[in-house]
Nucleic acid binder design. Structure first.
Lengths: 343, 343
DNA sequence: AAAAAAAATACAAACGTTTGTATTATCGTT
DNA sequence: AACGATAATACAAACGTTTGTATTTTTTTT
């Protein structure tokens, strides 16, 4: 007791069996170059000595860590967690692990995290850029240094060389709003998110496009671009918005499930009946909408599949023989409208 | 174009400046042994050449990866994500990164993940064992090999040498039930989780203790130990439970916020008024309870702080000069009752 | 039984750092 | 100007693997 623990390494096995380290290494690899009987011996002593390979040494030698870096803007949004689950599942099945970091909605933290990824800990990166990320030079830099990257969610078109996984936000929200219109709704409110995020811009475009298509005038007062980055404030922002309206809407298109729920909560508090007086539709479909009373109609976004797909694209890049001539691929996943009680 | 990218390394800087690698290494470390003027030169050329240190090589050399392995039973439970946030925050401030894995509620996956951690990728581990984890030999093994470990949530007393972070589940649920009793409730239902988890056992004990203390008979039919491991089934299990009751309870103590919400949803569907006819109290306080209508009274559990504390304990262990004489420390965090509309 | 072919193993360099020790350069002292 | 002291730098081993090439052993062929 009191001694520092020393891991057993290849050398220890080699010494005990009076053979070379190289042979031990190859034996454990089941390399056909080593005689079956020695392989047996090596396996046995490795087991009895409690050998555990050193991943770091392996990585240094092979130049691969088998780790995928994942950078998301925040942990406390089920969408991102769900994407991570998808990434994790695909990665795990292909012998990769994932290292998740949060940029906490900050461009500076994003850069900081990417630098730490760049130090060689990860073989590639899956990233949802923050809304603050105007300048994408740091991403293009990384790519030009040979780092495989896949973007999802808040895509930046200017990033060349990175694969994209996305949905057609404009089309999906058009469908949502069209659905409301076909139910006879005329005063449709829009609850969006941070204006700088491409997904929210696109969802807004879809909203406007649908109204235009059906010749419904756009009322600015019915439009809210929610700016809060934290739960506590979102609540208030939405409450204030509905209080500010002279006449209430007959339907609300919320750009996320969370906004949808907060909307329903606010409306219920003010005595409105859902869906009788106001219909509400959300975006995302991450389980919460099913718990609420009434349950929330929404656009179902394949979050888990986005993660899987992103991992697939990245691992494909990692397996490309010549990283230099990678062709940017863009995957667009399908959404669908799930009708529940709120409409 | 078309060439494989080669990272610039210390050797490249050394060659360019005609000095030794050791000096370059020390210069970048701001080691006082190198002359300020050379340090300057090194910094400059490092910058212009685009040098980025190789973390893997550093780790091999130093024997430290500065990564903390985190193993949770599932991703889709906000409690665990919140704990991870806490860990992440503390770790980041102390120059550690976290590598999160999910054991997906399976003992086998837990072992598998721990083995992959053991390969030297992480300096220490923060873990919430699965409910299946009866045998803790694999944990004691790891600890005896010198791996620092901190447990949280589903503590296993038999694990010696690992620090624990926990709350007093029995006391907290006693308080919750007592609160209901003092409101005059007599028929209190209990919605628990997987019986094998210590937290649920303790919360059940607290429930029984409170009833006993106040001389209220325990009705078995009012007790549900929810066994589902996935969202879809929990819903149905709780619905069936309430349907099965001959007469409805006047209060429900749910062992998690999620169960609390599902309970409220079920009760509302069957036309019950909350809190007029039935009071509901949850456990956790992770934001969801505030969105629902009515908002959910619950025991507030300091999840984020649990994560921070776990990280603190682990990093303390990592900094102990002699890992062998680590003394197991147990931290118990305080809970409180947050009253909202459901009671 | 010797030579050639094939199989099994050993040697040594490489991966990119860190760090203890040896060496060289610089400075102040006399 | 020579000396010792100190400052600055260089050398080389170490971290634990992998892998190309060289060497040895075994088997096959004649």
């Amino acid at each position: 007791m009191g001694f520092k623990k020393r891991r057993v390494k290849l050398e220890d096995i080699a010494r005990k069996l009076n053979i070379s380290i190289a042979t031990v290494s190859r034996a454990l690899d089941e390399n056909p170059r080593v005689k079956p009987s020695t392989r047996e011996k090596v396996f046995n002593t490795a087991k009895t000595m409690g050998y555990m390979p050193n991943q770091i040494a392996k990585s240094l030698s092979s130049g691969k860590t088998n780790i995928i870096g994942v950078l998301i803007p925040r942990y406390d949004e089920p969408f991102f967690i769900e994407v991570c689950r998808g990434i994790d599942q695909y990665a795990r099945n292909h012998n990769y692990k994932i290292l998740i970091s949060s940029s906490r909605n900050s461009y500076e933290f994003e850069k900081e995290n990417l630098i730490s990824f760049e130090k060689g800990l990860v073989d590639g990166i899956i990233l949802s850029p923050t809304h603050e990320t105007e300048n994408v030079a740091h991403l293009n830099d990384l790519i030009s240094k040979g780092m495989p990257i896949v973007l999802f969610d808040n895509i930046r078109e200017q990033v060349s060389g990175a694969d994209h996984v996305m949905i057609d936000d404009k089309k999906a929200s058009f469908a949502a709003v069209e659905f409301l219109i076909k139910k006879g709704k005329k005063k449709i409110a829009f609850i969006g998110g941070i204006k700088e995020k491409k997904v929210f811009q696109d969802r807004y475009k879809g909203f406007i496009a649908a109204l235009t298509e059906y010749h419904i005038p756009v009322h600015q007062e019915l439009i809210l671009h929610c700016n809060s980055l934290h739960r506590e404030f979102e609540d208030k922002e939405i409450l204030d918005f509905f209080k500010s309206l002279s006449t209430p809407p007959d339907a609300v298109f919320a750009c996320t499930d969370n906004y949808g729920l907060l909307t329903m909560k606010t409306l219920l508090k003010t005595g409105k009946k859902i869906p009788e007086e106001v219909s509400v539709i959300g975006f995302g479909d991450l389980g919460l909408g099913e718990i609420f009373v009434p349950t929330l109609t929404c656009i179902s976004q394949p979050s888990f599949e986005m993660g899987q797909k992103a991992a697939e694209l990245l691992i494909n890049q990692l397996n490309e023989p010549d990283e230099m001539d990678h062709k940017k691929t863009i995957v667009q996943l399908e959404t669908q409208l799930t009708e529940r009680e709120s409409t």
